[in-house]
Simulated assay, not measured.
Amino acid sequence: MSAPSVQLYTVRDAIAEDLQGAVARIAEIGFTKVEPYAFVERAAEFETAFAAAGVTAPSGHAPVIDAADPAVAFDAASRLGIGTVIDPFIPTDRWQTADDAARLAERVNELAVQAAASGLKFGYHNHNWEFSTHVDGRPIFELFVEQLSPEVVLEIDTFWSTVGGADTPAFLRSLGDRVQFLHIKDGIISGDIATALPSSESALVVPDALAQAFANQQPAGQGQVDIPAILAAAPHATRVVEFDGYSKEIFGGVAESYAWLAENDK
């Protein structure tokens, strides 16, 4: 197993209370890599926390697609040693037509060029609606990917693609090394998790039904996602543990996912 990472949004409450302490606890579990979110606003704090815990950040999430000045995010990423900046969220209402897919792909391609000028890569992270929304009988995410330049990195959230109806292992095989990061999470893949949507303004604003569905997520290997097949389909991709929510103690859940990967991702 290559060393896995963890999306720090998973432990957002702990980060809000004590960023450096939260990162230290992640390192104590065994992680040497992390994926920060909202790092632009707290770059100095993250820099200090990463150095103290001895972790690196190969990737990081920032809302760059709609940013007035993407250079701000790219500069913060460079400061933190982040090699790939990933935009984590474009809401469902902007994934409805072939023109939508083309528009987003054009913007992402432009940002990949800007990122490269800063020595970085740029990519996108999916949710479920990019797969559940179909155009001409195909998931709109497929139309989007077909129009991306080869330089664009894909981070496939394998839980959300599965919730959206994709055969995720088959999809990963079709993409090959375009996929450099996999979000690994598990849980129930039907019901409110598939139909309740976050705010169109932010993935961080969720209705009660979706928040309750998040709480049904489980450590890797304990839910309905075929994670072994997913891992086998993209052996080169960095595994990034994530929970959108969890009903138990979150660091314990993260530790269980880490241990499962160590045992099963050979």
Results as ranks from 00 to 15, higher is better:
202 S>Q: 12
203 A>K: 02
204 L>G: 03
205 V>W: 00
205 V>M: 11
205 V>R: 10
207 P>F: 13
207 P>T: 08
207 P>S: 13
210 L>Q: 09
210 L>M: 13
210 L>E: 04
211 A>V: 00
212 Q>W: 07
212 Q>K: 15
213 A>V: 03
213 A>Q: 05
214 F>G: 01
215 A>W: 10
215 A>D: 11
215 A>P: 04
216 N>L: 15
216 N>F: 14
217 Q>L: 14
218 Q>T: 08
218 Q>K: 15
218 Q>S: 12
218 Q>F: 09
220 A>N: 02
221 G>K: 04
221 G>F: 09
221 G>R: 03
222 Q>S: 12
222 Q>N: 08
224 Q>V: 03
225 V>Y: 14
226 D>Q: 08
227 I>H: 03
228 P>F: 10
229 A>T: 01
229 A>G: 10
229 A>I: 02
231 L>M: 09
232 A>M: 08
232 A>V: 05
234 A>R: 06
234 A>F: 05
235 P>Q: 11
236 H>Q: 15
236 H>I: 02
236 H>N: 15
236 H>G: 13
237 A>W: 03
237 A>R: 05
238 T>I: 13
239 R>Y: 07
239 R>W: 06
239 R>T: 04
240 V>K: 05
240 V>N: 06
240 V>Q: 06
241 V>K: 04
242 E>H: 05
242 E>A: 06
242 E>T: 01
242 E>P: 02
243 F>L: 14
245 G>C: 12
246 Y>A: 11
247 S>W: 07
247 S>N: 10
249 E>S: 13
249 E>Q: 14
250 I>H: 07
251 F>W: 10
252 G>E: 12
252 G>M: 00
254 V>I: 03
255 A>E: 15
256 E>L: 14
258 Y>K: 02
258 Y>I: 00
258 Y>D: 04
259 A>D: 14
260 W>D: 01
261 L>K: 02
261 L>S: 02
262 A>L: 14
262 A>V: 10
263 E>Y: 00
